[in-house]
Amino acid sequence: MYTRKIEEDLDCGLILGMKVLGGKWKCCILDAIHKGFTRPSEITRSIREASPRVIEMQLAELLFFGVIEKNLESEQEYPKRTEYHLTPLGQTLLPILSQIDAWGLQHADIIKERLTEV
């Protein structure tokens, strides 16, 4: 198992928050689940820029941290119908996601301008 050479400061809220939300598409995945896209294929379709493999990896990390839960609708049905839902811990992230969304929309002109310069 990999051991870090420099210990992480797990008493820092920003580091802990980034452990959970850091990584591509996690905020978008949580937003999609909140909006009712609960099946993996629905989540992938709602985030066109992300590959299904990346979505799958990010869902696994969100499951690990207990932000979402995975439900198998029918054990006897094939293919099994998998759905994801926010846990109570995941629900506490919604106001943060709303604030990030509002900030992005408020500063959209500046950000879009910078992105077109690249």
Rank of each mutant, 00 (worst) to 15 (best):
W25D: 04
H34P: 06
L115R: 08
L93M: 05
E77R: 15
E75Q: 14
A32L: 06
R114Y: 08
R45H: 02
I33Q: 11
L94Q: 15
T92V: 14
I6S: 13
T87P: 03
S74R: 04
P79F: 03
S74P: 10
M18R: 14
F65W: 12
L86C: 04
L97T: 08
L16E: 04
K24G: 03
L105I: 00
P95R: 05
V54M: 15
C28N: 15
D11Y: 13
G17F: 03
E73G: 03
L14H: 11
P95Q: 08
D109H: 15
P88T: 03
E8D: 13
D31C: 10
L16C: 06
I6C: 11
E61P: 00
E77G: 08
F64S: 02
V54N: 13
S41W: 07
I110T: 11
D109W: 03
A102R: 14
E77F: 14
S51M: 14
V54G: 08
T38N: 15
F65N: 06
Q99L: 13
E8P: 11
R81V: 05
K19M: 15
L10T: 12
K35Q: 07
K80S: 09
I15Y: 15
L93D: 00
R4S: 13
C27W: 14
L94D: 05
R81F: 02
K26H: 00
Q106L: 11
I33S: 12
H34M: 05
K5N: 05
V54P: 06
D31K: 05
A50T: 11
L63T: 13
T87D: 06
T38K: 08
F64Y: 04
H107F: 09
L10M: 10
K80R: 09
E69N: 03
F65G: 02
Y2S: 01
D109I: 10
P95L: 05
E56N: 08
C27H: 15
K35A: 01
I29G: 02
L94W: 02
I100N: 09
L86R: 05
G104Q: 07
E83Q: 05
T44K: 08
D31E: 12
P40S: 07
R48L: 15
Q106S: 01
T116A: 08
G22S: 00
